[in-house]
Amino acid sequence: MFKYTIKRVLLMVPTLFGAACLVFFLLRMIPGDVCELRMAGEGGYVDEDAIKTCQHDLGMDRPKFVQFVDFITGFAVFDLGESMWTGKAITHELGLRFQLSLQIAIMATLVAVIIAIPLGTISAIRQDTWLDYAVRTFSIAGIAIPSFWLGIMIILGLLISTQAWFGEPWMPPIEYVSPLEDPISNMVQLIWPAVATGYRYSAVATRMTRSALLEVLREDYVRTARAKGLLERIIINRHALKNSMLPVITVIGIEFAFLMGGLVVTEQVFNLNGVGKLFVESVQNHDYTMTQALVMLVATVFVITNFVVDLFYAWLDPRIRYS
C-alpha cells in the first residue's frame, strides 16, 4: 500500500508536466499577445517600440525555452508569479475568486448527493416500474439541460414568483459576501448557481447509484439476507447500499474535479466573479501567466482528486489491495 501510494504520487509528475507543456505551447500559438491587445485597446495607433518595451517588461522576448523553464520552476515551488494583464500577484487575484468557486462547487456536490442517492436507490428498488422510468427521465434530463439555461430559467422563475408573491421582482445579489460575514445573504446568493450546477452533476451520480445498487442486489449475500427474513429496508440500507457506494464515490470525485468546467458557464449566467469567469477572461486577454496558473490549478485538483478517490476505494473495500 505504501509503495503504491509513492508510485501514484510520482506518476502525478509526468501528467502535470505534460499539462504544463500543453498549456504553455497552446497559449503561445494564439495569434497576438497581451501587449498588442492592451495597446490596441487604447487607440487605433500602435507603437511598435511600446509593444517591444511591454514585451520586454513581461519577459516575453526571452527564448521560449527559458520562459518555459521559468514557468515550470515557478510552479514547482508554488510561485505563480504575476498576472500579465493586471500586473498583480496571481495568488492575490485568485484568492477571493477561488473561495467563491470552491464554495459553489462544494454546495453543488451536496445538492447532487442529496438528489442522487435517494433517487438512485428508489429507481433500483422499483426497477422497470413507472417510478424507475420517472427517475431515469429526470436524471437524463439533468444531463441534457444546459446548466446555463437552467440558470436563466431559475432567474426567470425567481423574478416571476417574487413578483407574484411580494409584488416586487427580486434577483439574487451580485456582490459576493463571505459566508463568515453574513451566512444568510451568502446562501441566498449562491444556492441558485449551486442548484443549476448540482442538478446536472446529480444526473451522473443517480445513474451510477442505480446501476451499482442493481448489481449488488443480485449478489448471493443479499439473497441470503432475504432468505433469513431480514427486513427489505435493512437489506438495502445496511447491506446493499454500503457496498454499492464505491462507483458512486468515484463518479462524485471525478465530477468534482470537472466542476470547474461547469462553473465557467454558470458563473457567466449569474454574473459571479469566480475562477471560471477569470479563466474565460484571461484566455481572451492572452494573459499567459494567469491562464497557465488556472489550467495547472484544474489539472492539479483533478490529479489529486483521482488519487484520493483511489485511496478511498481501498479503504472502503478491504478486498482491493494495491500492489
Binding site: 470537472f258 465557467v264 489550467v295
Partner: peptide, 15 residues
C-alpha cells in the same frame, strides 16, 4: 492522461 485532466469545455475553450 494529460488530455483527460481538463474538463471538456476548458479544453475546447483553449482550442
Amino acid at each position: 492522461d494529460v488530455f483527460m485532466s481538463f474538463p471538456l469545455i476548458i479544453m475546447a475553450l483553449a482550442i
